[in-house]
Design a protein around this nucleic acid. Structure first.
Lengths: 342, 342
DNA sequence: AAGGTTTGCGGAAAGGTTTGCGAAAATTAT
DNA sequence: ATAATTTTCGCAAACCTTTCCGCAAACCTT
């Protein structure tokens, strides 16, 4: 079946393309009778204006690219609806890309977005991203870029973040208040700012309570790999190093720690308290349920998208840095009063 | 900043646009030396091919439109990653649209997708959709359309569904097996096939156990409206009609039923068992946790997207109807053995 | 009735890419 | 050296829309 274009209508009506275009846009220059005729035929033929042609003319596709490590991570799952809402309000659509925490995929996705002349980009960096040329490229093309959740200092742009330092500090403090002083820590991906900040918050809390950092109970877990996560946890357990609590960069790690600890007969939270990050829904399914730092993902999505449009609609624009509050959700895995499971 | 195009490169190099185009595509007609020169300059200028122009030429934008009532519904939240995965594999991107269960929005979104010449559409209908002209329009334009989760018989196309009849039948049977015979039912949106099928499954199970349908304990709840949901539940409770179980079209309804029942001192599951649909994560948070019919959303997403590409890549195509298995997740709200809460 | 104004419409360019076809340049063959 | 190839590249059309500019016809003025 042929595509219906302005030309189709113009030819059938014996008028010019520009007249058809103007008629459909209710341009005052067009006589009522011809406008009617055009409208009727357009309706009858199911004419749909070709956005592609319009976008080419406009040099922009009214679309915002959203690049995240994994859609299925709780944080992004919750942030997406917020973004969609704001975009919808502006008449824009969302192009959602997944990087699977791979730098190469991220670069490919960014190029793809740039190539389709996206009006803006909202991005949460892949864990493996250490080179930022592709992000600089976005800015060089004058496409608004907003970073959210995962920051990096090398890029200057608007950002929507959580105070990860403070969140980790609080979580650590709660554990210390429960008289736990040998708090193990699982660090996340090395070059992720949020990972670094969480570690610093943890360190600071210890320092403020005159507890010295014990490198033996600080491990690194590149959390997207199940095997390495298990390995890191096992390493801690096998090391013999004393620990009465675990603060983990992510719930994925914390969940495994909880499961593996139980397998070893470690009582939670009696012998070992555990707190993770992100407040994944599955935390509820565990026994005991896992405590976690919850982040206002929905609001992050809204804020991030709003910043894109703010930048899009102003010629001279000052980057904004929005820091939202996280909250600590305490559950059975860290409540000193709860009975040991089993 | 100027957009870098083939012309930019051509002019700087003193060659023609077509030569640049061919050079970048490694066309054999191009001398190695000029190819080199073009590549270098393109690299240096951050040239990104303009997809918009290409798509216009191609008359298609390599994009699949995904239209769902609400991204945040558990089913869609889980289906999306599956879709993204398949699309990515085919080098396509996802344009995700939300209808908020409004017919008007759905029509607008569809038109928008048609207008931007989407290569295919995956759709789960809004609850208020009773007119299907916009869907027929998709098909008239020869754009592959795949319906998932929410079906409608008026449209003939590939579909990915759950056997809602069977799921409701099973859930009802479980309740009957617990010696509950006065099972109330909350129907979902009237003209939604899945709503109808669930009701039929419920009715069938009752019939197969010689239990007659009691219209007094069958209510309708247009679940997206909190107030009407509460009203429907209150109506049941206030009616004085005997009931020892509730099967609800959605978890939203079931959750409210659970909360409201507890407020009235009704013991769950002792006095009243409750089962919902969709297995929302929040079911775990309730006390007691809510039983629910879980649907393989991720697989639905994969299947649906695969069908789009199947249709896209074959000239003469036979529609497929895929029915996936759901499973009943029994939790405290319906287990006869568990102790009454409180 | 001659000039000026308004009304209604068409021509053409621009946006960036791909590609068939033809033409010039370089190569080989005679 | 000329003819016959082969190699390398340019022209132009096509994809569809919007919009500036201009032109003709119809209207109004005095």
């Amino acid at each position: 079946m042929e595509d219906i274009t302005l030309k189709t209508i113009a030819t059938k009506l014996g008028i010019s393309i520009s007249t058809v275009s103007r008629a459909l846009k209710n341009h005052p220059d067009i006589r009522e009778s011809t406008r009617q005729a055009v409208y009727e035929l357009a309706e009858q033929l199911d004419y749909e204006p070709n956005q592609l042609a319009f976008q080419l003319l406009n040099r922009r596709s009214n679309t915002i690219g959203v690049v995240v490590p994994k859609i299925s991570y709780a944080l992004y799952l919750q942030a997406l609806p917020g973004m969609a809402e704001v975009a919808e309000k502006h008449g824009y659509q969302l192009l959602i890309c997944q990087t699977d925490d791979s730098y190469e995929k991220e670069v490919r996705q960014i190029h793809s977005l740039l190539s389709s002349r996206t009006s803006g980009v909202v991005l949460s960096m892949s864990a493996n991203t250490t080179n930022y040329d592709h992000l600089l490229k976005i800015q060089r093309k004058n496409v608004p870029l907003v970073l959210f959740n995962r920051d990096c200092e090398e890029i200057t742009c608007s950002k929507v973040l959580i105070d990860n330092h403070r969140a980790a500090y609080e979580a650590t403090s709660v554990l210390i208040a429960q008289d736990r002083r040998k708090i193990a820590f699982f660090r996340g991906p090395e070059h992720l700012q949020i990972s670094q900040k969480r570690f610093e918050g943890y360190s600071q809390a210890l320092a403020d309570h005159q507890i010295s950092l014990n490198p033996d109970i600080i491990k690194i877990a590149a959390d997207q790999e199940k095997d390495s996560t298990i390995a890191a946890i096992t390493e801690l357990f096998d090391s013999g190093a004393q620990h009465d609590a675990i603060l983990a960069y992510s719930d994925q790690i914390a969940q495994w720690a909880l499961v593996l600890a139980k397998q070893r007969g470690i009582r939670i939270p009696h012998d070992l308290a555990i707190i993770g990050f992100y407040n994944e829904p599955t935390n509820e399914l565990l026994d005991p349920p896992l405590s976690s730092v919850s982040q206002p993902a929905y609001e992050m999505g809204i804020k991030a998208m709003e910043l894109v449009f703010k930048e899009l609609n102003s010629t001279r624009f000052a980057f904004e840095r929005v820091v939202l509050e996280s909250s600590l959700v305490l559950r059975g895995s860290s409540e000193v009063n709860s009975l040991p499971s089993q």
